[in-house]
């Protein structure tokens, strides 16, 4: 994996600033409609079979009345050292040359080995054939495969958008502009508070590379479950807590 990382052209990744997240779930809805994810009804949640490529985890901190809600959007971390990849017997999931952990739906036989091995629980299995109400059938995105039952799926960083921008750039003889809104996944574009940033970690001038560089060296940046060595491509920036900082200063 390390050699691949050095030779590859791009390294798509995301920075999530938890200080800005309000838990509004706009990213979840945007993802749902962009990627042809079936509507999650109450029954799906009761069966624990809901599919959400990005989800907002909610944590409560403190005791009433001094209680705080913390939000954390969790999606596929596109690990460079992904635990899901080596366990797939048919190469349905592999790492592409742009640092994306991609899922090939046609190859998948549905062993669910990858889902067990994902420490972030970012992989979802299609237990049923997906169904939409008639009124929503024209809403399906033609650029995204509708997955049949019996296969795994997960966040792709909206690979169809990346492909579209690259195709357009190639046809018009331009280079892919990192700040291009059309390049960003649906969740990033939908976020009203600019919590999510998307870009190329390989390009030193990109927003995400600069943020990662600044924040991971003594700043607020961290990776989820860094200790198991998955080497993820999503950087989280921890919440700035004025009250806690003030308390610490008093103690100091």
């Amino acid at each position: 994996m390390a050699e691949l990382k050095q030779t590859q052209q791009r390294q798509w990744g995301m920075v999530i600033d938890l200080d800005k997240c309000t838990g509004c779930q706009a990213c979840v809805v945007a993802c749902q409609s962009e990627n042809n994810i079936p509507i999650n009804e109450e029954a799906h949640y009761n069966q624990r079979r809901a599919i959400q490529w990005i989800r907002v985890e909610r944590y409560w901190e403190g005791e009433f009345p001094d209680i705080k809600a913390r939000f954390m959007p969790v999606l596929c971390q596109h690990c460079d050292n992904a635990p899901c990849e080596p366990v797939c017997p048919v190469y349905a999931t592999y790492h592409n040359t742009e640092g994306l952990n991609v899922q090939v739906y046609n190859r998948c036989v549905g062993t669910r080995f990858c889902a067990n091995n994902c420490p972030y629980h970012a992989r979802f299995f299609n237990f049923w054939e997906p169904a939409w109400p008639n009124s929503l059938k024209n809403q399906l995105n033609p650029d995204v495969t509708v997955r049949s039952r019996g296969i795994m799926e997960k966040c792709t960083f909206c690979v169809q958008r990346i492909a579209r921008v690259k195709r357009k750039a190639k046809n018009e003889g331009e280079t892919v502009n990192d700040g291009d809104r059309a390049l960003s996944p649906a969740c990033v574009n939908a976020c009203p508070t600019e919590t999510l940033f998307f870009g190329d970690f390989k390009d030193p001038n990109s927003t995400v590379a600069k943020m990662k560089d600044k924040e991971t060296h003594g700043g607020r940046g961290y990776h989820l479950l860094e200790e198991i060595g998955t080497d993820t491509n999503v950087v989280y920036l921890k919440k700035v807590d004025k009250h806690a900082e003030a308390k610490e200063e008093v103690h100091a």
């Binding site: 048919v90 299609n126 019996g150």
Partner: peptide, 26 residues
């Protein structure tokens, strides 16, 4: 598995047509 009709491609891994070999790390 989710799609048993494709299990043969993995249990008897001789899928020369697609040129995709089974993942021996699995």
């Amino acid at each position: 598995v989710g799609r048993p009709w494709r299990a043969a491609l993995w249990v008897f891994p001789y899928d020369f047509e697609r040129g995709v070999w089974p993942n021996v790390r699995s």
